[in-house]
Nucleic acid binder design. Structure first.
Lengths: 253, 253
DNA sequence: CTCAATTTGTTCGTATGTATG
DNA sequence: ACATACATACGAACAAATTGA
C-alpha cells in the first residue's frame, strides 16, 4: 500500500452523481493522457485501485473494461493491466488569429443552408463595435467537411452587400464571398472566442451530445465608415477546436 | 429488451451517463443564466419539455424539483413554472495573446499549492516545441480570485531554474516568477488553447460540474538554446474564458 | 519442477438509484 | 402512487493464469 493519499469518491458529493466506474475511468484516462502511465506500462493492480478509490473490485473492473473498449488498456490474467495506446487527439480546426488564415481555409467549404424560421432580426452590436447598417440579411448554415458537420453558422450581412450576390452568399461561406468582393473596403475585423455547451438544436446539427462543450466564435467586420457589414456567430464542437498563439518568438527563422 | 430507442438526449454515450434529470436540469439552468428565461418568466410547460428532451414527465419534474431546491424555479399547480432567481454571469477571464498581457494579470495571483501525489514525471514535449531540459520540477496549484477557484494549473519548470527560487515558485504563479527572474533569456513563448470537459478531479478543484466545458491552455517557454524551461497546463472553467482576436484594424487611432 | 504469491477473471446475492408508462 | 425494468455498486468467495523463489 504505497502510502497514497486515498481520495475515496464521496457518496454525497454533488458531483458524484456520475456513475462511479465512469469517475474511476476518467481518472485513469487522465493518467494515461498525462503520461503518468506510458504505453507498455503496467498500471496499478485491481487491489490497489480498489483501495485508492474506495470502490469494489467489480467496479474497478468495469472502468478498466471501458478503457479496454477504447483500446487504451489491455488486461492479462495473472500478469496485470497494461497501457496499449497513447491518447492522441484528433485533427483540429485551427482558429484564425489573422484575416488571411481566417478566410483561406474556408474558401472552398461546402455550406448547407438551413431554413430561417425566425424572422431575421437585427444582430446585436455593442456600442464600441461599430454602427449598425440599415438592414441585414440573415443566413443559417451547417458547414461540412465531407459528410461530417463541423460548424453551425448564423450570419448577418448588410443587406446592401448581400444584394450584390445573393446566390454566392447562399452557396459559400459568407466571409469568403465578402473577402473576394471588389470595392468592399474592410476597415476592421474582430473575432471573439468563448466557450459554451450545446443546446438541443446545436447538438442536433453538429451531431454531438446536448451540453457537450462548444466553441463560440463571433466575428465582426466593419467598413471604412465604421459600419458593421458582417456579424457571424459560428459554433464548433469543442473537441476539434484549437488555437495557437505566438506570445514571443525571437528565434531566427 | 425495452431499452431500445432512447437517444433523444444522450446520443453520444460519452458524457451522457449522467442521470437524465441532471442533464435536463443543467440545460434549464443554462437557459436561466443566459437570460433566455428572465426572473418572473414562465418557463416551457412540462409537456413541451418532455417532448423537447424526449424524457418522461416524471423525469422533467425531477429536474425542476432540483432547481426549485436551488431556489431558481417555483412551480404553481395550474399556472406553470416560473423563474424566481437570476444566475449572474461571472466576470470574464481574458486570455492573453501576447506575453505582457499573459503575465501582467496573474502577477499578484494567489496560488494554493496542491500535493503532488504522483511522482513528478517529465512533461510531454513535441519534437517541434524544443529540446527537453535534463529534469523538471512539477507543481500543481489552484489559482484563486478571492475565495473562488478559477484555474487549475499543472506546471513543469526546468529544475535548474526552479532551484534558484523554490519558495517563490511555491507561492506565486510560476510564469510571473519566471518573467521577473534576471538572466533568463526567453526566446520563445507559445500558447495553445483547446476545449475540453471537466473530469472528476478538475470538477472538484474548480467547483464546477463534471463534464462542464473547460478551456485548456498549454503554454511552452523556451530559452535561447531552444531548451524548454517551462510547460504549463492551465484549466479554466469554460464559462469564464473569453479571447479577443484583432484580425484587421486599419482605423486611425 | 513444485509451490506460493500475485493478479486478473467470474459468479452470486443483495441493495439502491434511475426512468418508464 | 405503482409495478416494472435496467443500471449501478457492494462484498465475498472462488477460479485461472503467471511469475519467481
Amino acid at each position: 500500500m504505497a502510502s497514497g493519499a486515498r481520495k475515496a469518491i464521496s457518496r454525497h458529493d454533488a458531483s458524484s452523481r456520475l456513475p462511479r466506474y465512469l469517475q474511476v475511468a476518467s481518472v485513469l484516462r487522465r493518467r494515461i493522457r498525462d503520461g503518468f502511465w506510458a504505453v507498455g506500462d503496467k498500471i496499478a493492480t485491481l487491489e490497489q485501485l480498489e483501495r485508492e478509490f474506495g470502490v469494489a473490485r467489480v467496479t474497478v473492473r468495469q472502468s478498466i473494461e471501458l478503457l479496454q473498449g477504447e483500446g487504451l488498456l489491455r488486461s492479462h490474467q495473472g500478469r496485470g493491466t497494461f497501457v496499449t495506446k497513447a491518447l492522441e487527439n484528433k485533427r483540429w480546426i485551427h482558429l484564425a488569429t489573422d484575416w488571411e488564415s481566417l478566410v483561406e481555409p474556408i474558401r472552398d467549404n461546402v455550406v448547407e443552408l438551413l431554413p430561417t424560421l425566425d424572422a431575421p432580426r437585427a444582430p446585436m452590436i455593442g456600442d464600441d463595435e461599430g454602427r449598425p447598417a440599415p438592414s441585414y440579411a440573415y443566413l443559417r448554415s451547417v458547414q461540412k467537411r465531407g459528410s461530417e458537420p463541423y460548424a453551425l453558422a448564423r450570419v448577418h450581412v448588410a443587406r446592401e452587400i448581400f444584394a450584390r450576390a445573393p446566390k454566392r452568399f447562399a452557396a459559400r461561406p459568407a466571409l469568403a464571398v465578402l473577402a473576394e468582393m471588389k470595392g468592399i473596403p474592410i476597415a476592421q475585423a474582430h473575432q471573439t472566442l468563448s466557450i459554451s455547451a450545446a443546446d438541443v438544436e446545436t447538438a442536433r446539427h453538429l451531431e454531438i451530445a446536448i451540453s457537450a462543450p462548444t466553441a463560440e466564435a463571433r466575428c465582426i467586420v466593419t467598413d471604412e465608415n465604421d459600419v458593421v457589414i458582417y456579424v457571424g456567430e459560428v459554433t464548433y464542437p469543442g473537441d476539434v477546436v484549437r488555437l495557437n498563439i505566438e506570445l514571443i518568438d525571437r528565434r531566427r527563422r
